[in-house]
Design a protein around this nucleic acid. Structure first.
Lengths: 114, 114
DNA sequence: TCCATAGTTCAGAAATTCGGAACTGTTGAT
DNA sequence: ATCAACAGTTCCGAATTTCTGAACTATGGA
């Protein structure tokens, strides 16, 4: 398997962040990750309630999130631990992630209104 | 010509906003519009400095911005007046547009830091 | 009426996205 | 050591989307 690419903080592009979060499935995954304490695995995040994401699509979603700089992925045994880079990101793009998650109504700990 | 579609404020979707602003050309156009006082025309916004956007592409960019809810377009004689809906939008998605433009370093009146 | 101008629509080529099937890498059991 | 199970990745073809030149539409002025 090819080594996973993670951009350095200063190489993160706003267009990549916006693109990654312009897909509601990816937002749902990201929001679950932001809520999860331990670092979610792919398969644990596949179930969106209304549909189960095929694993190749899921793998691609994680790739987009990772390469845009939204998450870090690290192999841990058979699984992949994923966690958000929200602290770093907020330093680079103040208020951005929070405003986006708020817009989607999926800020962790906030009641969903959809 | 088909009448131009503008979504009602409550129908504006965050994914459409993020998608529209995940393209640096559209962001450049939107930022110029946000800065312009009168309501910019398409052709006045075509020149990005490093390239001139073909007019069919430009027309499409405006369509994307319009249908996502970011701008309103209104025919005025031969031209099209375009203006941002930033005040309304900020009510619906507080802080979102500002955070995005700040991330791009193109908030009107703010020095670019890239 | 005829021309110029601003922008839209059309259509085909190019690029991107989606997802099933095959594959890789890791762990645990025999 | 070999095998099976499992998590996730890669491959590749089909479907969708994007891009843009060319044709078209709408408006105003001479």
């Amino acid at each position: 398997m090819r080594p996973l690419f993670h951009p350095a903080l200063e190489d993160i592009k706003p267009e990549a962040i916006l693109y990654a979060l312009s897909d509601p499935e990816r937002v749902a995954i990201y929001a679950k990750l932001a809520g999860a304490s331990g670092g979610g695995t792919c398969s644990a995040l596949a179930d969106l309630g209304d549909r189960v994401i095929p694993k190749s699509s899921l793998s691609n979603h994680f790739k987009v999130l990772r390469e845009s700089g939204l998450i870090v992925s690290e192999r841990q045994g058979v699984e992949m631990r994923n966690q958000t880079r929200c602290t770093e990101l907020d330093e680079r793009f103040p208020g951005l992630i929070k405003a986006i998650l708020t817009a989607y109504g999926q800020l962790p700990g906030q009641p969903k209104t959809d």
